[in-house]
Amino acid sequence: MNIVVILQTVPDSAEELTLADGVLDWDEAPLRLNEFDDHALEEAVLAKEEAGATVIALALESAGDRVLQTAVARGADRAVKLIKEVPLDASARMVAPLMAEAARKLGADLVVTGVQAPGDIFGQLAPFTAAELAWPLLGGAVGIDCSADAPIVAQEFGGGRSAQISVTLPAVVGVQAARRPPRYVSGSKLRQAVQSASIEKLDVAAELADEPGKLVTLHSPHKTTAISFLDDDPVTAVDQIVEIFRQRGIVGGGRG
């Protein structure tokens, strides 16, 4: 079985993100592996370790070699970089056809990637890629068990609700969290992988899709994060808090 893991680099929201003319200053933006993709990779490697599979890490050329080298150090069997001119701010919808073609060319049975990325305002990569491939999608995955012919995916829906769903391959899975935190790659293993991992190149014929949505401008949130002090009198403060709870649906509704 071939598991293709799509790895994307995204601006790190833990860092300062600078804006230039109402859009992200991509030259300044610190790019890192999308956290959810990190979990997707871990889950793919776990699935492989349990049931045997070939894990192929796939990334756009612009993501840089380091991401793929790390993936190899983490247990990916192959590392493939997709050769295509892609603007850094291309949306998930735009790149989905490229990923879909690459997945086909790599003989994927299962495509795994993060359930979302921090900037995908026009939709996520996993469902767009599934749609391109016309394969079923399982999002919100928290575990993939590949020991049976039809793998079983654990999906979580919040509020403690979850389900085990079997899927006929081929399929796309959007991973929310691996069963365990992504494994640690020590500095020495990383240094080794940087020297020895070979990265394959893959050309695709597909073109970027059009993105029907349009980004007008990016800005910092308007709302202030500064604290609002409630009344010092407990009776009044309690009333105010209950009102806040009401507004946010924390009390008084069957929120899932």
């Binding site: 601006p11 929201s13 833990a14 993100l17 804006l19 992200l24 921090p118 900037g119 995908d120 305002i121 026009f122 029907p212 949505g213 349009k214 980004l215 007008v216 401008t217 990016l218 800005h219 910092s220 949130p221 308007h222």
Partner: peptide
């Protein structure tokens, strides 16, 4: 709301 609430994007379609 994107980037962990750090930025907001005005978008249209």
């Amino acid at each position: 709301q994107i980037y962990g609430g750090k930025l907001e994007a005005d978008v249209e379609c």
